[in-house]
Structures are given as C-alpha cells and as structure tokens.
Design a protein around this nucleic acid. Structure first.
Length: 582
DNA sequence: GCCGTTTTCGGCCCGACTGTTTTCAGTCG
C-alpha cells in the first residue's frame, strides 16, 4: 500500500519540478500541486484506497491530480513526474537551492551558459561568465558566490533544530528590545508555530520610534556575519551557524495583522486572504482592510483579525492549513491544555540517575512549589548501564520518599522508575520488584537500528507490561542529531488505546517526542491518552512544560485526553487500573 | 491545476528588497 505521506511526497516533488517548468513557485499549477499534497498528507483515510471520485472530493484535488494519484498507486510512478525528472535532473534542481538563484535564473544559467549543476556554477563564477548575461551584473555574480561560500550548497534548505534557533532568537529579541522606542520584539514564523526545525528566524519588533534606528542596531549586532537585506521596514542578516534572521518593524496598531502575516504558515495565510477577498477585503501585514476605500477592518490584535474573518483565534502551532480553518469554522477546534491545567509531572529524575543533578528533597520541593497535586519520581532503571540505579538505591529512595511525604500534604509523590525497553521488549527488574513501584515510564534508549517490525513489537510488549503507565519519548529521536525509531504507528496506537498506556509528550526541546505528526495521528485513535512530562534532570527544566503544552497544541491534543490535567483521584484511578491489569 | 450562490471561464494572496534597469523582473517569505 502506498501511504498518504508517500503520495504527498510525490505531489510535492511534482510541485517543485513544476516550479522550474513554470518559472515561478507562485504559478497556479505549482500551488495546485502543493494544495493537493497537503490535502493528501492530512487525509485521515488511506488515499491509496480511494476511487477517483473519492479523491476529487478532497480539497484541492481535481480530475488531473486524482488520475495522477491513481496512476501512482497502480503503476508505482507518474508519467508526468518522470518527464519532469528527465527534464530537470537532481544536479540541476540543486542549483535552485543556492540562495539568490530562483527558477528563472536556474533555467537561464542552463540555457545560456550550459550550467548543469552547482560545480558548473562555481566554475562559471570564477570565469566571471554570469556578469555578462543581460539583466545580471557584477553584483549579482558576487552575491551568488558569497551565498555559496557562506551558506553552502544546501543554502535555502538548511534547517536549524528548534533548540538552537530559540536561543538565537531570544538573544536577538533581547538586544532589539533595548533600542529606544521598541515596545517588544518577538519571534514569529516557524519558530512561533513550534516546528521541530527552523529555516530562518522571523522577528517582529513593535516600535513607536524611528524604525531605521532599530534596523541599524540589528545589522550591527555581534552575531551578524552578513547583511542579506537592509531596508526601513525589513532587513535580513545571516548570523552565527548560518541561520538567517529576518526583522520587520511595525507600529503598535499593526501588530495583529503583522503577527498573523509573519507567523504563517504561507498556506494558512493564503486561506485567510481568500476569506478576506470573499468579503471584499484584503489582508496584508499592515491591516485587514476594505478594497477600494482602504478602511481598516482590523489590525491591532490577531484575535481582531480572525474575528473579522468569522474565526476564533487560532493558535500559531496549528496554522498549517491542515484542517484548522475548517475545524475553526465548524467550532470543532480541540480545547487545548494550558500550563495551569497541569496537575503533575510524571517524568522527573534526581541525582540518583547518573545524568541527574538534583537531590530528591530539592526536586520534590520544586515540584510542590509549582503547585502540583501529584508527581512521579522516575530515575533510570538498572539496565541503563551508565545512568541506571541499582535495586538497593531505589529501595532507599522509596524510604526517603516515604519520610518526605508528611512535609508535602498537598502533593501525592509516586515512587516510579524510568524503565528501559530492551531489544526484545522486556524491561528492567522482575515482576515482583516492579510491583513495588507506584508508577512506571518505559522508554527506548538503545537498539535504534532494529527493523520496523522489531521496534513495533518491543514497544507494544512494554505497553502491555502492567508496570508501565507511560511510554517515554516514543521515537527516541534527538532533533537534528538522531532520527527516531521506525514504528508501525497504527499497531502501537491500537495497543495504547487498548491498554490505557499513555503516550508521553516529552517537553525537552531536543526531543519533542512523540513528534506532532505522531500525536495528531494518535488523537485519531479514540481512547489513546497522553502525559505531558518534562523528563527533568534539573530544577530549571520543570518549566519546560511550556514546550510540552505547545507540542500538544501542534499535535491537536485535546485537554481531556491529557492524564496529568486530570484531578488527583481520577489520575490515581487511571494509574492503578493499568497496574492491576493482568 | 482547481474551482463555482460571480458555476465550465476567468479568475486564482501580498508586499519588501535588490540589481539592473529608466519602469521592472526576480527572489524571498
């Protein structure tokens, strides 16, 4: 069976190559392929099993695309795509990844200079061939050369893990906020949408003063390695690690429309602008306004803009044109959890773990200070060679917890353990010892290279273990460093629903695991529940709940399915039920 | 290529900045 994401992938490639054929990524055909790809990607039913008539019922899929999808499912390829691949081989496509080289330029370079890939381009630049083309000049040639040097061949498509981007963005925003007249500077774009990786950092500064003063400060920041653009309203720099940072300066009254505009996604914005046009309005970064008269309909806050378009405010994390507009119109957006809904943290380490840093008493004090009603202390089980704790130490930790409990009458402290899921799905310790714990998180920490069937089997086996209440960081990925394990998700989620074993929403920015795509899929399995847990190894990390809340939003997780928003009694019943299952 | 209470043609989201141009095309987001 061809999966929805495989089909979507083919359609995205079609869009990409059509960009070259059409000469613009804004060409209607290109956008049509992209819309169809998103639609297929977001479909809840297997698209490969749909008839042509059912396919055309999908938004953005018409007769032509429907028949291409059937062709792909039945023959394994799409003739039109093969044609385009022959016309634009991978080496040539890579030319368009160079910053400053778009589809028009790439085609001209090929037709007029015989440039077939980036190596050819480098050589042509050395020979100063580019500057002699009509419409190009010394400066253009120089800019392309510099772009290749600074950003590498991948150029436009290099993405930065969110954990790095968020730090850079914070530093830049703080520096911008020190400029007189600046009321605020905040990251927008994919960072605000909380994607795992960030292409470039978009920042909006709200200023009552001179925008040029803000821009001057921006391009003079110590982080700047190159200035890509410099204008009164918009500037762009390349900073450390090659991250591009775009800054826009707006007036306070424009903040709402600017935030909508620069948060995106592009596809989400296009939907909003279409809705604006339907009402005789136009939406840009400055305002939602009447066509013709220019009368401003809304601009000050995002909520104003959405409300004018007949929508509730839509959280940035789900602005992907992935069904959020339809859900919002129907009043069917999930009720998302907020930080104050969280009544406990269910994955917390102390210095008993080799990688932990905080003594038990201090950690519990910090948990109590957050106002939690319950919490689970979950140091590593002994099978994690370096960081795991032996039985005797866990037994004495249990006694220490018992001694601490009277000091924290409002906090139910569960003695738990982060168990390791072995190659075969077994976990640390024997059943009798495991039964002594109040709570269990089981996670994959090794054997990342097993087959999808082996990975699926071991995770399912752990879920069925009565000592396991939550599967920690389901895929084991480290964003930008290590891909997650391959899993047959539907099989895993079915067992999660069946056993009541929760899927962790790990708050660490390095993990954000389970990933949002997995969470959204899991939401479609009725009965699957989730735990927003910090996996803290330090007191400061307890505040990472903010990340988990955002990841949960990105995964469309309804608050009612998050076990650690439940009142203590209901939560403890859920814990006990799982542990008593045969 | 898609779509339709403007329904089978003629529309389709919006603007800043750059470089090379005398009015705009290309790139980017």
């Amino acid at each position: 069976m061809t999966s929805n994401s495989e089909i979507a992938h083919h359609l995205y490639e079609l869009a990409r190559l059509a960009t070259l054929a059409e000469g613009s990524s804004n060409a209607f055909r290109v956008r049509a392929y992209e819309t169809a790809a998103r639609s297929v990607d977001g479909a809840s039913e297997p698209v490969s099993e749909m008839t042509e008539a059912e396919l055309t019922a999908l938004r953005g899929v018409g007769k032509s695309t429907a028949s291409k999808i059937r062709e792909l499912v039945e023959t394994g390829s799409i003739a039109r795509l093969e044609e385009l691949r022959a016309q634009f081989p991978p080496g040539f496509v890579s030319l368009t990844r160079v910053p400053g080289v778009g589809p028009k330029t790439a085609v001209r370079l090929r037709d007029e200079l015989g440039i077939k890939d980036v190596d050819d381009l480098r050589a042509a630049i050395e020979r100063h061939d580019l500057r002699d083309l009509p419409g190009m000049g010394e400066k253009t040639e120089d800019n392309i050369r510099a772009a290749i040097e600074l950003l590498g061949v991948g150029g436009k498509e290099n993405r930065t893990p969110i954990i790095e981007a968020i730090r850079v963005a914070r530093d830049v925003c703080e520096a911008i906020e020190r400029v007189p007249g600046v009321e605020s500077a905040e990251p927008m774009g994919s960072l605000r949408r909380f994607r795992d990786t960030i292409g470039d950092i978009d920042i909006i500064a709200v200023s009552t003063g001179d925008p040029e003063a803000v821009m001057r400060r921006f391009v003079e920041l110590p982080i700047v390695r190159d200035i890509v653009g410099y204008g009164a309203r918009k500037s762009a720099i390349v900073g450390a690690m090659g991250i591009q940072i775009d800054l826009r300066v707006v007036e306070p009254v424009q903040f709402g429309s600017a935030a909508v505009y620069f948060t995106g996604s592009k596809a989400h914005n296009i939907r909003l602008r279409q809705m604006a046009l339907d009402r005789g309005w136009t939406l840009n970064e400055y305002a939602l306004s009447e066509i013709g008269t220019g009368r401003v309909v809304a601009s000050q806050t995002e909520a104003d803009v959405y409300a004018a378009l007949g929508l509730p405010w839509i959280p940035p994390e789900i602005r992907e044109d992935d069904g959020e507009i339809e859900a919002a119109l129907a009043g069917e957006l999930p009720i998302f959890a907020s930080e104050r809904d969280l009544k406990g943290d269910l994955h917390v380490h102390t210095d008993l773990s080799g990688d932990g840093h905080v003594p038990l008493g201090e950690m519990i004090e910090a948990l109590a200070a957050r106002g939690y009603r319950y919490a689970a202390i979950t140091d590593h089980g002994e099978n994690l060679t370096i960081n795991g704790a032996p039985r005797e130490q866990l037994m004495s930790q249990r006694k220490a917890i018992a001694r601490l409990r009277p000091r924290f009458p409002d906090l139910t402290i569960l003695h738990g353990c982060e168990l390791n899921i072995g190659r075969d799905g077994s976990i640390d310790y024997d059943a009798e010892f495991l039964a002594g714990f109040d709570f269990g998180v089981a996670s994959v920490h090794s054997h990342f290279g097993l087959s999808i069937d082996e990975q699926t089997a071991r995770v399912i086996s752990a879920m069925r273990n009565p000592a396991v209440n939550v599967i920690g960081h389901l895929t084991g990925r480290r964003i930008g460093k290590r891909p997650g394990i391959d899993l047959n998700l539907d099989a895993v989620l079915e067992v999660a629903a069946d056993t009541g074993c929760a899927i962790e929403i790990n708050c660490h920015l390095d993990r954000l695991d389970a990933p949002s795509e997995v969470l959204r899929r899991a939401m479609e399995h009725g009965g699957v529940v989730f735990a927003i847990s910090t996996d803290s190894h330090r007191v400061s990390e307890l505040a990472n709940t903010a990340n988990g809340i955002r990841l949960a939003r990105r995964g469309w997780i309804d608050r009612s399915r998050v076990v650690n928003t439940w009142p203590r009694k209901r939560f403890l019943n859920w814990v006990a039920k799982k542990r008593s299952a045969a």
